[in-house]
Amino acid sequence: MVTEYESALEVAERLNRLTPGEFEKRTGLFSTGAEAVENAVKIARTWTGRDAIVVLGHAYHGRTLLTMTMTGKNVPYKEGFGPFAPEVYRVPSPYPYRWAGAATTETGIAEEAFEQLVDQITTQVGTANVAAIIVEPVQGEGGFIVLPEGYMTKVAQFAKENGIVFIADEIQAGLARTGDLFAVDHEGVVPDIVLTAKALAAGMPLSAVTGRAEIMDSVRAGGLGGTYAGNPVACAAAIAALDVIVDEDLPGRARHIEEVVMPRLKELQAECAAIGDVRGRGAMLAMEFVVPGTRTPDPDAAKKVAAHANARGVLTLTAGTYSNVIRLLPPLVISDDLLEDALDVLAEATRTLA
C-alpha cells in the first residue's frame, strides 16, 4: 500500500475510464465485495459528515458486521450474529412480483416505491442525516429482482438534491452480466460511487470502489487500506478479465444468452404452475417457485428442481428472501450448444416436479 504495483494502477485507471460518468474519478482496491461496501460507507460518511445509510428490502451486501446489517435476509446471513451495526435504515424494495402497494405496472411500482423511500427517509431518518443510499440495480441474493424502470433514476436524483452519496453495488450484476458493462447503464444512471468485485478479477480476490474524485479524496491519507488490497496477482487477473469483457463484447454475449434462455423459461412457466415468475436481465436470470394457484413461496420446489439439475451435472443455485428462487448465472463465454444442453436438463427437472 506504500508504493502501488503498476498492475494496481492499471486496474484503477481502467475502472476510472469504464465506470459511468465523465467526471474525474479515483479507485481504491480491496479484497472482497464486503470490504468494498464497508469502505464505500466510510468514504460517504467522511464526505457528508453524516451517519445514516439507507438500503433496500431484499438487499444483500455482505457478511461482515456492517454489511450483514445492510443485508435483508436473516437466515442464513444474520441469525445468531447480532447485535448489529447502528444507523442502517431499510426502505421497501420495488419487487414487481410481490409488490404490496396499489400499483400493478412497473412504472406505478417504481413511483410508489420511490414515494415510500422519500417518506421514510424524510420522516423516520431525516434527510440531513443520510450519508448514502446504496442499491443493487438487480438484487442478487434477494432473488434476482430487477428494479423497475425509472426507480433508480428517481432515487439518484433525490440523492443529488439532498447531498446524499448514491452508491451502486454492482458486485453481482456488473461487468457485462446484465447485458451492459454496468447494470446502471441500462437506465443511464450515473452513481457517485460504483462497487465491483467477483467478475472483476475472474474469481481472484479483488474488489474496487470507484467514485467521484472529490468524494474519494475526502478520506485522509492512510484511512483506507488492507493487507492484501490491490494484490498484484489478482490485479493481473483483473487486467486480463477486463480485456476479455471489453474486447470480446461480453455485454453483447449476455444479451444473446437472455434471448436464448428467456423464451425457454417462459415455456416452462406455461407448463408448470409452480413457476410463479421468470425474470432477469442478460445472463442474470431466475425462476421463482410458488404453491400452484397462489403466490405463496415454495422453497421445497426450488430445492427439488435444483437438486435434480445438479445431480445431472447442471449447477444451479437457490436464492431469494424466501429461498424459493433458482438463479441462473451461465458463464458469459458458454457455447450455445452447452447452454441448450443445460436448459434441457433444467426443463427435465422442472417437468419432473410438475
Rank of each mutant, 00 (worst) to 15 (best):
Q124F: 13
G33M: 06
G293K: 12
T294G: 09
L332P: 08
M262N: 06
V189I: 09
A52F: 03
A234M: 02
V135K: 04
D169R: 10
S93R: 02
T196P: 00
I133E: 14
L66K: 01
E6A: 14
I53P: 02
I275V: 15
G62F: 03
V345R: 01
G320R: 01
D180S: 11
P20T: 02
E111Y: 13
K25F: 10
D243E: 09
G174T: 02
R281Y: 01
V219P: 01
A240M: 09
P292D: 11
N310G: 11
E248W: 00
A307Y: 06
N310F: 06
T46W: 03
E106M: 04
Q124K: 15
E187D: 14
K42C: 03
G126T: 12
R220S: 14
V2A: 11
P297D: 07
R45G: 04
N162L: 10
I171S: 09
A102N: 12
R327G: 13
E87A: 13
V345E: 12
D249S: 06
I215P: 01
G72C: 03
L329Y: 14
L117S: 10
V291D: 08
T316W: 11
Y60H: 12
D341N: 10
E10N: 07
L353V: 11
P263F: 09
A110W: 09
S218M: 08
L242C: 02
A213C: 02
T153W: 07
A229M: 05
P83R: 14
A213F: 14
G101T: 04
A131W: 04
V190Q: 05
N74K: 03
F158H: 13
D298C: 07
R281L: 09
D300E: 15
R264K: 15
I275W: 08
